[in-house]
Each structure stands twice: as structure tokens, then as C-alpha cells.
């Protein structure tokens, strides 16, 4: 770990709070998302054990984790907690409850346009296959790319031990949802490819996420996604986009001109951790799982 960016490890380790968790920035209280990314980046190190020790007791009765002890609401980042438990072989009651919560947590279906709306407009305001709901940021809301990607990776890791057809069906639905939301340029944004008759552009970080969600898939759409991601890479993205694109390229075995993510004491913990996860020997392999 650290590879071409050893300073990032020290920066990350210095962020760990006394309770074992991490905030989004130095000195902030512990939150689920940065703690989960840091734990993945520190996979195999004792600091990961400390992070997991903070995370464990936070689980809510319904199986999900809250985003922060100060905001007791089920968080999309529960998927990251499930992933971590899988990587540690913790297939316990807590894991089973969390997976059950995630499986039951399909996004809201956006109502189809009425016959009148169809008559008045040539196409829907938001063009998408509404049957492919994906996962939401907030329970009960519509589905978007990023929470769907994290749910797929968590369920994919859980599949061998959880059993049942529902889980495989959910993964399939999630992957199809990502494919359906692919932008015209081949990449992804947060989840709207066409709105009010206009095509929307992809974002580099979301394009990377789309590819991470499809890391077990091959085919023309994935190839278009990779081509788009390489286009984003050629424009020298920084920060989160750069960190996620490196992960996506490695998961898909794409050759690219790598360069380390520039980090500093002000870098968001999420970016810091993902910069390490995307190193050649980083935890991207564990995130992908299987024969990475």
C-alpha cells in the first residue's frame, strides 16, 4: 500500500480518530463513509481493526448503518460496511441483517407518464427504464448510479455465503440499471442520461463508478464506457475523479498512463483513501473480489 504515493498513507493514518473512525477531514468526528473507505484502504492493517471496532456497534436495529452517530438515519454507505465485513470474513448475524436490509431496499419506482403526457410530449421528461430501480441515496427515494454501484459490489461479495435467488436477481437488476443510464458519450453522470429532450454529459467520477459497478461485465456498452473513461483521463482529472478512474481501469485491466493522485493535508479523507485503493497493489483487488 502506498506505492507511488507513500505520503498518503501517513496522512490517512494521522486522520484516524481516537474512537477508531475517520472524519471527512482532519479533526472532524467519525462518519461512516470516510471510515469505510479508510478501512478498505488500510485492509490488512491493525488500523482497519480499529475502524471496524468503531463501526460495529453503530449498526441500527433494522440492519443498516447511520451516516454518523449524530444523524441516526439509514445510510447508503451501509453497502460499504457490508463489503468490509465480507472482506474480513465476518459472515455473522450483523452481516446477514445488513444484507437483508439492502436487498429489501430497492429504490422507489418513478411513475410512468400518463397517456395525456405521452400524447403531449414526444418523449418523457427523464428518459430511463423505470422498471430498473437501482438503489437510492436515501431510503424510499429514486435510484442513482453511485448507491447502486456500492450495493452491487456489496451483494456480489455476499453472494457466495448468503444464498438465495433474490440476491442474484438484485445484482442483475442493478447492472442493467447502470447500463440503462449510460450517457450518449459512453460514460455516466449521477444517473440522468437525457432530460427534457437534451442529452446530458457524463462526469469522470461517475463514469469510473459505472465501470466499477460493471467490473464483472463485458460487452460493447462496457467498452464504450472504458473508451469514455480514457477520454476523461486524457483531460488530466484530479481528486476524486482521478482516484476512481484508476480503480476502474485496474478492475477492467485497462492499460493507462498512471500518475499518483496529488494529496495534501486538506484532501478529503474519501479521496485520500481511494487514492490508496487505486494504487497498483491497493485494495481495488479486494473491492473487485474473485479472481481480480
Amino acid at each position: 500500500m502506498g506505492g507511488s504515493n507513500p505520503g498518503a498513507v501517513d496522512l490517512l493514518l494521522a486522520r484516524q480518530n481516537a474512537d477508531g473512525g475517520f472524519g471527512f477531514r482532519a479533526g472532524q468526528s467519525s462518519w461512516l463513509e470516510p471510515t469505510a473507505w479508510a478501512a478498505l484502504a488500510l485492509h490488512g492493517r491493525p488500523e482497519m481493526d480499529r475502524a471496524m471496532a468503531w463501526l460495529g456497534p453503530m449498526q441500527l436495529a433494522g440492519g443498516a448503518w447511520p451516516a454518523s452517530p449524530n444523524a441516526q438515519r439509514e445510510s447508503w454507505a451501509t453497502s460499504l460496511a457490508i463489503l468490509l465485513k465480507c472482506l474480513r470474513g465476518e459472515f455473522d448475524a450483523s452481516w446477514r441483517k445488513a444484507v437483508a436490509w439492502l436487498i429489501s431496499g430497492e429504490a422507489r419506482r418513478i411513475p410512468d407518464p400518463s397517456w395525456l403526457e405521452r400524447l403531449l410530449h414526444r418523449e418523457d421528461a427523464v428518459v430511463q427504464d423505470r422498471s430498473l430501480r437501482g438503489w437510492p441515496w436515501t431510503p424510499g427515494a429514486a435510484g442513482w448510479i453511485e448507491p447502486t454501484v456500492h450495493a452491487i459490489r456489496a451483494l456480489d461479495h455476499s453472494r457466495p455465503r448468503y444464498g438465495g435467488a433474490a440476491l442474484a436477481e438484485k445484482i442483475e437488476m442493478g447492472e442493467r440499471m447502470i447500463l440503462d443510464r449510460q450517457c450518449r458519450d459512453g460514460g455516466w453522470n449521477y444517473g440522468n442520461k437525457r432530460v427534457l429532450g437534451e442529452d446530458l454529459d457524463s462526469f469522470p467520477e461517475c463514469t469510473a463508478l459505472g465501470l466499477i459497478g460493471l467490473c464483472r461485465r463485458r460487452g460493447p456498452q462496457v467498452e464504450r464506457g472504458i473508451a469514455c473513461a480514457l477520454g476523461h483521463w486524457s483531460r488530466a482529472p484530479r481528486g476524486l475523479a482521478q482516484a476512481l478512474l484508476r480503480v476502474a481501469f485496474r478492475m477492467h485491466g485497462v492499460a493507462f498512463a498512471d500518475r499518483p493522485v496529488e494529496v495534501s493535508g486538506r484532501t478529503d479523507t474519501t479521496v485520500l483513501a481511494l487514492a490508496l485503493i487505486g494504487e497498483p497493489e491497493g485494495a481495488w483487488r479486494q473491492w473487485k473480489g474473485g479472481a481480480a
Binding site: F24, W31, R73, W137, T138, A141, W144
Partner: peptide, 13 residues
């Protein structure tokens, strides 16, 4: 966004 996501979809719903 840390709680409500990107986009903050609950505001739309």
C-alpha cells in the same frame, strides 16, 4: 450530501 446524496433527491420527492 453526506446524508441525502448527489443529487439531494428527497428535496425533489
Amino acid at each position: 450530501g453526506s446524508l441525502y446524496g448527489w443529487p439531494k433527491n428527497v428535496l425533489h420527492h
